[in-house]
């Protein structure tokens, strides 16, 4: 990251809020879905996070502490922009790699190699970058000899 100096804001979170339904299996109507008014909350919804604001500057390391179910991973998902907030905004300068569920999308029928190129590509890496990192990725995953076998079989092995 060339132009980034120490103290430059990297993650800016302002007034962040997200609400979930208490009962996921509950009935749902088309009206719920299409009603644009997000402020009007139905009683079976609760705010997992609300009015969260902070800034992370370059060079800072931040830890998030909390009990089970208090919204740590929800916050992470919002910062990684894999969930969208109901209120407030998240601004990220540069790349954020969510390490939550990162191996999730592998297709069993494709080879390990194809899967790595696909997933890394979807996370924004170019082909050249993946070429460079490929050996490291395979080494890290410890599947050295199986890169060209279908993912389903190498998982079993």
């Amino acid at each position: 990251m060339a132009a980034v100096t120490e103290g430059h804001p990297m993650i800016e979170v302002e007034g962040l809020g997200i609400s979930y339904r208490r009962n996921r299996r509950g009935r749902r109507s088309f009206k719920d879905l299409l009603s644009g008014n997000l402020r009007r909350k139905r009683p079976d919804e609760f705010w997992a996070l609300r009015d969260v604001s902070f800034t992370v500057r370059a060079g800072e390391a931040i830890g998030v502490v909390g009990r089970n179910g208090q919204g740590k991973s929800t916050l992470l998902k919002l910062v990684a922009e894999v969930q969208l907030p109901d209120e407030g905004s998240v601004r990220v300068n540069g790349g954020v790699a969510p390490l939550i569920e990162i191996t999730g999308g592998f297709v069993d029928d494709l080879s390990v190699r194809d899967n790595v190129y696909l997933t890394a590509g979807l996370h924004g890496m170019s082909k050249a970058e993946i070429d460079d990192a490929f050996a490291e990725i395979i080494d890290f995953a410890g599947v050295g000899d199986f890169v060209d076998t279908p993912t389903s079989t190498s998982r079993a092995a």
């Binding site: 990251m1 060339a2 790349g95 696909l118 979807l122 924004g124 890496m125 990192a133």
Partner: peptide, 24 residues
């Protein structure tokens, strides 16, 4: 993934969308 952010920022959102669509 240390080198990734620079290139990621350099690519426009539209180009990235197209690239990902092509991958999928």
């Amino acid at each position: 993934m240390t080198a990734a952010p620079t290139a990621r920022a350099a690519r426009s959102p539209f180009a990235r969308y197209r690239h990902s669509l092509w991958l999928l």
